[in-house]
Design a protein around this nucleic acid. Structure first.
Lengths: 254, 254
DNA sequence: GGGGAGAGATGCCGC
DNA sequence: GCGGCATTTCTCCCC
């Protein structure tokens, strides 16, 4: 335990429990085993992990590889460190959610804590909503005579991305996908259209269904055709194009 | 920058870039802004964040609250720290995925790095597969005369959780959900059954559809009935029961 | 708080 | 690698 300036678990325990009270972020790298019980049950045998307790009492356990925490607890969990001679044990309990985690720490490789101030929120562009807005504002992407009426609307028939009609007043329902459309796209379309037709007392054949996406899987395309709908390839909005240009430059630069 | 023993960005830059070469895990708590460009575009203005670069070159940026990283890069991303007099900048680029992140660091609150060894994988119980196994092994949960034939099978009609027939040789298709079933459950069932009926040259009415879950939403229940399927409430398998007992004890204890 | 759908979803397994 | 689907999904929005 060379890297550990405090090789006495008891003093570490006190340090961490004090940091918990102060709502500090706590970062620990340790050799530990982790068990979870709650919505499911999980166990992870001993290995080196990054353990984080955030000021909002979120618990994260990360392995040295991979995007996601392998074990975690939601915000507002209670945490308690207990020293047990040659082990340090973290017991995390969320009584409301009926969940608990136990981490048995054999060795601490690194430990730190600090106050964090952050009031910002991440801003995101290029979502599905941006895409439906793009179609709404550029209806010609769908058809020359497409006249959009609403977008992103929660109707009693379900959630419809873009809704409108053509010059002959045929209803048009559009399901957008920002990435490659799968079987769920025509399926969702089908549900809206069936319900809509029923409530209007008209045939489903009177309502046009369109899957709008940058791409579609083979199966989904087949389904779309089979159900009498159409797939419309929609290139991403302009900021996406700008993004791609940037990336091309970047690729050239590197 | 009281908490920062090294208040010279240049030496920190060297430290980090050395750690990157050694495949150490790098943990930084810093006041920074973060921007992302790739599948979408994102920006997060200055605030205190936990920045992690894992040995596999995954990048994570965590805010002081919330479960998930707000900005991240997948494994095998290239990272480069550059010192720019009064700023330290991290440029992360994944050329294959056409993605990049830039983090502008104004102040470092905490920094550490270490080698991590971990060869374990998390074991998980209580998944949907466990539930379909449970039904397969205890067919009476569905019906007295249910005779399961296969489970978790990828057929050309789609992925069917449990498949079998009753004493009259009527086909039965079961869609499992480990949590409360939503509209997707009867929807999926519908797709499998229609394809199956078509391939067998029989009517969809000859095939029984069952949504098996611990609970179902009101809407999904209505849809299930409307499509001619049945909802079967399935209590979780025994290890889930054990879990609940444990939790009750725990609640009592605390 | 429940319900429904998206996410820069991610991750897993199968073809 | 694509495809289809579960996830202790999580998160947001709306009723």
């Amino acid at each position: 335990m060379q890297q550990n300036s405090l090789d006495n678990f008891s003093s570490i325990k006190d340090l961490i429990n004090r940091s918990l009270k102060q709502n500090k972020a706590i970062l620990v790298v340790a050799n530990c085993s982790v068990s979870y019980s709650g919505r499911a049950e999980a166990f992870l045998d001993f290995g080196d992990r990054i353990i984080i307790i955030k000021p909002d009492k979120t618990l994260l356990v990360h392995q040295p590889s991979g995007n996601n925490a392998v074990i975690y607890m939601k915000p507002q969990t209670q945490h308690l460190f207990i020293d047990d001679s040659d082990e340090l044990i973290l017991k995390s309990t969320n009584i409301i959610l009926h969940e608990c985690v136990e981490i048995v720490i054999k060795e601490i490789l690194n430990i730190s804590s600090c106050i964090m101030n952050d009031s910002e929120k991440v801003q995101l562009w290029g979502t599905e909503k941006d895409m439906s807005d793009y179609i709404y504002d550029n209806p010609i992407l769908i058809a020359k005579d497409f006249n959009p009426v609403s977008r992103e609307e929660q109707t009693k028939y379900g959630f419809i991305d873009v809704f409108g009609h053509d010059k002959n007043n045929n209803l048009i329902v559009i399901e957008c996908k920002r990435t490659k459309a799968g079987p769920s796209a025509p399926q969702q379309l089908r549900r809206y259209i069936e319900r809509l037709a029923k409530s209007k007392g008209i045939s489903v054949k009177k309502i046009k269904g369109i899957v709008a996406a940058s791409d579609i899987t083979k199966n989904a395309k087949h389904m779309t055709k089979e159900l009498g709908y159409k797939f419309k390839k929609i290139d991403p909005p302009s900021y996406m194009k700008r993004k791609k240009e940037k990336q091309n430059k970047l690729g050239k630069f590197l």
